[in-house]
Simulated assay, not measured.
Amino acid sequence: MDILSDAVAAMRVGIPHSNRTEVRAPWHREFPAQDGAGFHVVLQGSVWLTPTQGEPIRLQVGDVVFLPRELGHAIGDTPGIGIDRQATTQPGETTVLLCGAYRLDQSRAHPLLSELPDIIHLPARIGRHPALRGAIDLLGYELDTDADSGAIGPLLAVLLLYLLRAWYDDQPTGTGWGAALRDPAVHAALQAIHRDPAAPWTVKSLGIEAGLSRSVFAQRFTATVGTAPQSYLTWWRMTLAARMLRDTDALLRVIAEKSGYTSEYAFAAAFKREFGVAPGRYRNTAVPEVA
């Protein structure tokens, strides 16, 4: 069970999109803030990325930049926002970009994604992140040969996963989700929760999955993940339940069972504590995922 995949799937709504763009200097494009995430890959030339909050970043060939919460930014042949660039009779350097965007529900972001910085810059390095580079090559090929290819959506989903894996692989050991994913014991417990969230997990049984005593496991899990095992289990169950209420017509009894509750009443009470509204009210007001 891939915890990163689960975290992304819990937030994603709608259909991602991507395009391959070729421009010549001088050029400038701005992207407003939105509920989602975006990325740019420099295939040829160089780019200045200027966030609305922060310093400009120079991107070279092979560089990848990912904006997990789109706060607004500009890209161009020079740094800056609000620039009016007019074409000249002698265009300059050609730049080729692979760009894309994802719609994400930021209202209930998985903590694994919440801890990401506003901008993730993955410089091109020989031999680094081969899976990510492979996904980029495949996506670029599909966009070049058939912009309506049915493979583009799945490739964008894979690309997002590899972007996150690459960033977490580069993080130093310590606390946080990077440490949790690398800690064999904590990772085993997280996998167990994600594999079967409805199971009657206790701190003791999760500790057994982790190969640790109850007290040692609870301490290590809380230190890395940032919350106690039972708290994370409840949060994840409620996140899945909310998604089922929003995107399916499943009976409340079925959703309760899949969320680890033996009765609709117990589930409804837990859901209301988490969201402030009853499951039925939530279902009536939630916006379903756009196909």
Score class of each variant (00 low, 15 high):
Arg214Ile: 05
Ala256Asp: 10
Trp235Tyr: 01
Phe217Tyr: 14
Pro197Asn: 11
Ala269Cys: 02
Trp236Glu: 02
Pro200His: 01
Pro279Cys: 07
Ala218Trp: 00
Thr262Leu: 10
Thr248Lys: 03
Leu190Phe: 04
Thr224His: 09
His194Met: 04
Thr202Pro: 03
Tyr232Met: 05
Lys204Thr: 09
Val225Glu: 06
Ile193Val: 13
Leu190Ala: 01
Leu245His: 03
Ala241Thr: 05
Ala241Tyr: 02
Ala218Leu: 07
Ile193Pro: 01
Thr227His: 13
Asp247Lys: 07
Ser213Met: 02
Lys258Arg: 15
Glu209Ala: 01
Ser215Gly: 14
Gly207Trp: 04
Lys258Gly: 10
Leu252Trp: 06
Tyr265Phe: 12
Tyr232Ser: 08
Tyr261Trp: 13
Asp249Cys: 06
Ala223Trp: 10
Thr234Asn: 12
Met238Cys: 07
Tyr232Ile: 07
Phe217Ser: 12
Glu209Asn: 00
Trp236Ala: 03
Ala278Lys: 10
Ser213Gly: 15
Arg246Met: 03
Ala210Phe: 00
Gly207Glu: 07
Arg273Leu: 04
Thr262Ser: 11
Trp235Glu: 12
Trp235Phe: 00
Gly226Lys: 09
Arg281Lys: 15
Ala198Phe: 07
Ser215Arg: 15
Leu212Thr: 04
Pro200Met: 02
Leu190Ser: 07
Ala210Trp: 01
Ala256Leu: 09
Ser213Val: 02
Gly211Glu: 03
Thr234Phe: 02
Pro279Ile: 01
Thr234Asp: 08
Glu264Gly: 07
Ala242His: 04
Glu257Thr: 10
Thr248Met: 11
Ala250Glu: 13
Leu233Glu: 04
Leu190Val: 00
Ser205Cys: 00
Arg195Asn: 09
Phe217Val: 14
Val225Thr: 08
Met238Arg: 04
Thr222His: 14
Arg214Cys: 05
Lys258Phe: 15
Ser215Glu: 14
Leu212His: 03
Lys204Gln: 08
Ala266Lys: 07
His194Gln: 05
Gly207Lys: 04
Gly260Cys: 12
Ser215Tyr: 09
Gln230Ile: 08
Ala250Gln: 15
Ser231Met: 00
Ala241Glu: 01
Ile255Phe: 07
Arg281Met: 10
Leu251Gln: 08
Trp201Glu: 01
Ser213Thr: 10
Thr234Lys: 14
Glu264Phe: 01
Pro229Val: 07
Thr222Lys: 11
Thr248Cys: 09
Phe267Asn: 11
His194Cys: 00
Thr224Gly: 00
Glu209His: 00
Ala250Ser: 14
